[in-house]
């Protein structure tokens, strides 16, 4: 147990040091994920044109929703599909496979500690956003922030596992990163980063509810902004955990099969 704790601590602190070396690049990645901010502008423009509010949202509510969506999107970012794809094809995975630790945990430590590097800059943007749209209140109280932290952690883990599953596909063919691009396009429109799901056609919304997408952005945002009542929060946690567990199982199964193929693609 102590050895495990020590392992965790060393991995996170070393990877935090590593990620800090890339802070300039990280800031650029943050700015490149600007969809929620752009959509905030578009929807506020629409609310103004409609005389102050549209579909039950006024300017401040749009601002709160999209700022929360932006934070969430920032916190669940995962590039492990690209990293895995590269390492599998270049053979860089080999040194990691020689160690008595599943390489996933090292990638995970890298991703997780990167969030800490993001944090200061994220707060800056949110603060600026709150100033630009006066009267915006992001969250009602500290409890919602705590619940949100839990919810967004599960969301991050789910996205990480999805990306991991996609990256593992590089064992079989060399277009794994293209699939992650597909995911990216789909996620841009289905997670709620583009618009609150209230605006979606009912049939489409019913379909989206059966995918993991809304549980990555839309529902965590509702938890943070205080829109979700107690029972909904409980349900959201349940479904989130189910999706995370499902992708965990899928990644384990894929990983076992993938390893048997390692090396067949060059390396």
């Amino acid at each position: 147990m102590r050895a495990r704790l020590n392992k965790t601590w060393v991995l996170f602190s070393v990877w935090f040091a590593h990620m800090s070396a890339y802070r300039a690049e990280i800031v650029i990645w943050m700015l490149s994920g600007a969809i929620p901010l752009i959509m905030m502008a578009v929807w506020i423009g629409k609310a103004r044109a409609a005389g102050g509010h549209t579909g039950g949202f006024n300017e401040q509510q749009f601002a709160a929703y999209f700022l929360a969506a932006w934070i969430t999107q920032q916190l669940i970012v995962a590039w492990v599909a690209w990293e895995l794809d590269y390492q599998i094809r270049q053979g860089h995975l080999s040194p990691k496979l020689l160690r008595p630790l599943d390489p996933m945990w090292e990638f995970f430590a890298g991703h997780y500690s990167e969030r800490l590097v993001r944090l200061p800059f994220m707060l800056l943007i949110v603060f600026a956003g709150l100033l630009i749209v006066p009267g915006t209140r992001l969250t009602p109280d500290i409890w919602h922030v705590l619940l949100y932290t839990l919810s967004v952690t599960v969301a991050f883990f789910t996205r990480f596992l999805i990306a991991y599953c996609i990256g593992i596909l590089a064992f079989w063919f060399d277009q794994a990163t293209a699939i992650d691009d597909f995911y990216f396009v789909a996620a841009a429109f289905l997670t709620g980063a583009f618009a609150p799901l209230e605006f979606y056609p009912p049939a489409l919304r019913a379909f989206i509810e059966w995918t993991p997408f809304p549980y990555l952005v839309y529902y965590p945002v509702r938890v943070l902004t205080g829109e979700a009542p107690g029972p909904e929060i409980a349900r959201v946690f349940g479904v989130q955990l189910l999706w995370a567990a499902g992708f965990y199982a899928l990644r384990s199964a894929l990983w076992r099969r993938g390893l048997a193929r390692y090396g067949a693609v060059g390396a």
Binding site: V10, V14, A17
Partner: peptide, 11 residues
């Protein structure tokens, strides 16, 4: 730093 990681991983 890499040595420390290995120390932890190999216990």
């Amino acid at each position: 730093d890499s040595f420390l990681v290995n120390q932890a991983i190999y216990e």
